[in-house]
Each structure stands twice: as structure tokens, then as C-alpha cells.
Amino acid sequence: MTALQPQTVPVPVLDADLDFLDIVTEWDTTTAFHKWRPSIVVPATFRSANTPRTIVVGNQKGGVGKTITSLELAMAFAARGLRTRLIDADPQKAALTVWLRETCYPEVGPRHTLRDVFFGQATLAQATHPTIYRGLYFIPSDPDLSDVESANSSKVLSPETLLRDALRADTGEWDINLFDLGPNLDKISISALIAAQDLVIAIQDGGLEVEGTGNIITTVNSIKERMNPDLALRAIFFTDFKKDSLHRKIGQEMSKGFPDALIVPARESTNAGWSTLNKRPLRMYAPGDKPCLDYDRAAGLLISTDQKAG
């Protein structure tokens, strides 16, 4: 891990009296639409997981809210006292890295990235940077991370299993490792999926996003059979969720298609865009905002904190 900076900013715990979504086992399709209220679907078979846990957030399409889902879940975990490491595994625009650079880790000394881990130039611990937020740590991406795809075996040995092996060898005591994947199912994404127990999918408007969900599920099923039987789809997030017939219809279909996963409508808000523009997590920019509440409640469902004191 690089030189520490003080983690001076506490991640706020949200007031229980705020406008959280209800929790149901299925969406009510009999209520007239104008009276219908979005809720989080928690199947009867669903159980919160214990830590330590490795989670990936992905979909085979860009611009669907993977980055905000990753960041807000990480902030919600940190608020619960979980030592959380957020890992930017997107080589294309390094959106999460750009977002966090100004506010999360200092511009001092050499900074290792996820690329260095793949090319054997750093361990996960050496690529981990503290943030100003208590409990939140970060491994940045690099535009050259895409070199992993074309590297020969003498430079990157067994890339598909590299992250699994690196996590097993890591000396840090992490409660949560959370990967923000790129839109392509490349070697980096495959490596993260082989290392993880939980898959979280972010979709936005339906259509192409639903098709991308089918593609990643096909890949996940193949990985489960060959490399990682513990991997499971745990949640589907509808980012910028609008209360309309299209979103309700797609939510119903997703609930039927993936009956063991949470269905989470992360409600739309203009503050989400402003927080991105200001390069601040939504939880810090507008902690009482509706999508912040939705990500927070989902984080509490995904991970049990019974073993954490205070």
C-alpha cells in the first residue's frame, strides 16, 4: 500500500426516517399503475452474505450506471464500518479513476495501478491507495490496462486467474473487494469474475441493456462450470429508475428470469449528475437523495454486518 494519508472524512450513516424504498418479495402487478410504488424485490430465497466478500459490478454495455453503482455501494459499505477496497477494472476511459482522482488519493510519489498488478510490477497491496473517506481504499485503472488483452504469456502469466490468485495472496484484511468492470468481457473482466463470489448488474433503459445482461449471464454460467462454482448473480440495479410502464415491465421480467437476485430500482435524480460533475460520491454530495437511499438499502441487504460492532 502506498504512503498513508489521514482518512479524515467520515462516511455518514443515513437517517432511518428518510424516504427509503419498501422491501417486497415481488412487485405488485394488480395495483393501478398510478398508485404503484417502486420497491426493492428481495426473493424469499435470498440471504445476506458474510464478509470477506468479492463483488463485481458489470454489464456488456457502457453508460448504464456501473460506475455510480460501484462507488455508492462502496460508500455504503464503508459507512457500515466495512473496510472496503474499490478496484477500477475498466481500461477504456478509467471513469472511476478520473472521478476519484481529485478527492480520494494524493498526487504524491509513484502510484501503482491495476495494470502493474497484471504485469507483475506491483502487488495488490502496493497498488492500493487510501482515500480521504474512512474505510474506503482504491486501486486505480490506467489507459494502458488494455495492454493485458494483447500481452503474451511471458509478460502476463495466466491472466484469467491472476486476480483470484492475487487476492488469495493479499495481506490486507479487507471486508469487501469491489470491482467496477468495463463494458467488454475481456481478460480483465473474466479475471475479476473468476475471483468473485457476487455479480451485480447495472442496467438503465431496457432494450440493449437487457440484451447485454443476457450476454454476461451466459459468460457467468460458463465461468461457474469451469472455474468458479461460487459465482452468483446477486442483484440487478435499474439506474436512473423512472416510474413508468416500461421500467415496471422490465423489472417484472428480470424478477422472473433471475428469481434469486435482488431487483433494485435506484431512483433518478438530478443530483447524481451534479455529484459526478463535482467529482464527489453522491453520498457526500446529497446524502438524503433517493438513489443514495436505494444504494444504501441494497448494500445492507447484500452484506450482513451482524459481525461488525458499531
Rank of each mutant, 00 (worst) to 15 (best):
L185V: 11
P140N: 05
S255A: 15
T213R: 01
G135K: 00
I176N: 06
I188T: 00
T51Y: 14
D116S: 00
L246R: 13
R134C: 02
L145Q: 06
E26N: 09
L233E: 11
M227K: 11
Y105S: 02
R168P: 10
I68C: 13
G58L: 05
V13C: 13
V9C: 12
D260I: 03
C104L: 06
T131F: 09
A32S: 13
I217T: 04
K93H: 13
A44E: 15
E102F: 03
K308F: 12
I68Y: 06
A195Y: 05
I176Q: 05
E209T: 09
V148T: 10
D240L: 15
D142T: 07
V9W: 10
K66P: 13
E173S: 10
S150R: 09
K243L: 10
I188F: 00
P259R: 01
T213C: 15
A3H: 07
R226W: 05
R134V: 01
E72C: 08
P10H: 08
P281I: 06
L4P: 09
Y295T: 11
F238N: 14
P183K: 00
D144T: 12
I263S: 09
T103M: 09
P291N: 01
M227F: 14
N271M: 07
G212Y: 00
E225G: 08
R280Q: 15
A79I: 04
V64I: 08
A202D: 10
Q5M: 11
G300T: 02
T171W: 00
P110H: 11
T67C: 07
I176W: 05
V42G: 04
I263W: 08
L4K: 07
P10T: 10
G63M: 01
L14D: 08
P130N: 03
H247T: 09
L96S: 00
R111A: 04
N271E: 08
S275M: 08
A76G: 14
R168W: 10
E253G: 08
D230T: 13
K155Y: 12
K187P: 02
R53C: 13
C292I: 01
I263A: 07
D205L: 10
G182S: 04
A44G: 12
G81I: 03
D260K: 14
S158K: 02
L162R: 07
G81A: 02
A286C: 07
L71H: 03
R297G: 01
A266T: 05
F138I: 00
A78C: 02
D90C: 05
A309V: 13
T45R: 03
K66C: 11
E160F: 05
A125M: 00
D170H: 01
D306N: 11
K242A: 14
L18A: 12
L262I: 03
K256N: 15
V24I: 12
P143R: 03
G206R: 03
Q126S: 02
I55M: 06
A272V: 14
F118P: 11
R297V: 00
S48W: 09
S304D: 15
G212W: 02
G273Y: 08
K242G: 12
G257M: 14
I250E: 15
S304V: 04
L145W: 05
D260Q: 15
S304H: 07
F237L: 02
K243R: 15
R83E: 14
D17Q: 15
A89Y: 04
A195F: 05
Q92M: 12
V64E: 07
